[in-house]
């Protein structure tokens, strides 16, 4: 909880600084855009949170986004499939990818890093193959569907600002995810096995099935993200669509309180973490006019965040030891 407040405070501080330093930051257009991007990346972050909670990692998210984001317009406009069939196909592929990852990790005891690293290369390569590296897009069609990503919900009483539609998607996904993680027995199982898989197994929990579930959730949400991203920008280039997005998602989860050792994670945290990364990126571009150093800034901030967290933890342990010694 303290961690959440800390990261939220940091987000507020960066926002305040940006509001003071840059006029364009506080424009309605910029804020709307930030919220929309946060919502889209937030969905990915929530997905990877489930995997990180189990102590695993998913490096293939960006490539799943590429596969789905290019696959959907390709099926619709090149293969002329119907909309429901195309949507069902891309989502089925996403679920299947998660299932494959989970089974390889639990049945063959392969390391998550290797399995999903191979996935990272495999899915982008396949996409570039079937699209022949050509940009695919919706052109002027599917306006109704695109509302999901580009639509806006007016706020009564406020002029010049409307809530982007993906925010609604994020809220629904986040509430469902938070309830799953914090209120169901399965969420507790994930946290327990991420902390100590043996103890969970000895307590009668089917740990393999829970791990598979985590990878399925992650890939499914990556697939949903892929659909939303391509609807947002209207067209996708297989070469770089979704490139590095897994790193944003993982960084957001870590900033938001996940431990890569497993057993810890917060849905609200990952959303705040996502927002922080995107606001930082935005601020770097607007204030310095050097968008080429954005990665350096983001990297430095995340590093500072985890170092602070570790130092705080050590301080707490030392204080506890001192207190017990005094007793």
């Amino acid at each position: 909880m303290k961690k959440l407040l800390g990261i939220f405070g940091l987000l507020l501080a960066v926002c305040l600084f940006a509001t003071w330093a840059s006029e364009s930051f506080r424009s309605g257009y910029n804020i709307e855009n930030l919220i929309r991007r946060t919502a889209l990346f937030g969905v990915l972050g929530i997905g990877v949170t489930f995997v990180i909670v189990t102590g695993g990692i998913d490096l293939s998210i960006g490539s799943v986004i590429c596969l789905v984001g290019c696959g959907l317009p390709w099926l619709l406009t090149v293969q002329h499939w119907s909309l429901p069939a195309s949507l069902a196909a891309v989502m089925a592929v996403s679920v299947g990818i998660g299932l494959a990852h989970g089974l390889l990790i639990t049945r063959l005891r392969l390391q998550p890093f290797i399995v999903t690293l191979c996935g990272l290369m495999l899915y982008r390569g396949v996409t570039r193959g079937f699209t022949a590296d050509q940009t695919v897009g919706f052109a002027d069609g599917y306006k109704g569907l695109r509302v999901l990503a580009t639509g806006k919900i007016p706020v009564p009483g406020i002029q010049g600002f409307e809530i982007p539609a993906p925010w609604a998607v994020l809220v629904v996904v986040a509430i469902a995810a938070a309830i799953f993680l914090n209120r169901t027995i399965y969420g507790r199982y994930l946290l327990a096995l991420g902390n100590n898989e043996n103890a969970a197994r000895y307590s009668g929990i089917n740990t393999s099935r829970m791990i598979v579930l985590a990878y399925v959730l992650c890939s499914t949400l990556a697939g949903l993200g892929g659909v939303l991203f391509v609807l947002d920008v209207n067209s996708a280039q297989p070469v770089d669509f979704g490139n590095f997005y897994e790193l944003y998602a993982i960084a957001a989860a870590v900033l938001g309180g996940c431990s890569l050792r497993g057993g810890e994670g917060s849905i609200l945290g990952v959303i705040i973490g996502t927002a922080l990364i995107l606001v930082l990126r935005n601020v770097v571009t607007l204030v310095t006019n050097h968008s080429n150093i954005e990665f350096a800034i983001i990297g430095a901030v995340i590093l500072a965040g985890v170092v602070t967290d570790e130092l705080v933890k050590r301080y707490a342990i030392r204080r506890r030891a001192a207190r017990e010694l005094a007793q």
Binding site: N195, A199, G263, E264
Partner: peptide
């Protein structure tokens, strides 16, 4: 510690 308890979780959990 390795098989009986989830060490990082509270007593209740």
């Amino acid at each position: 510690k390795r098989e009986g308890l989830v060490l990082g979780m509270p007593v209740r959990e």
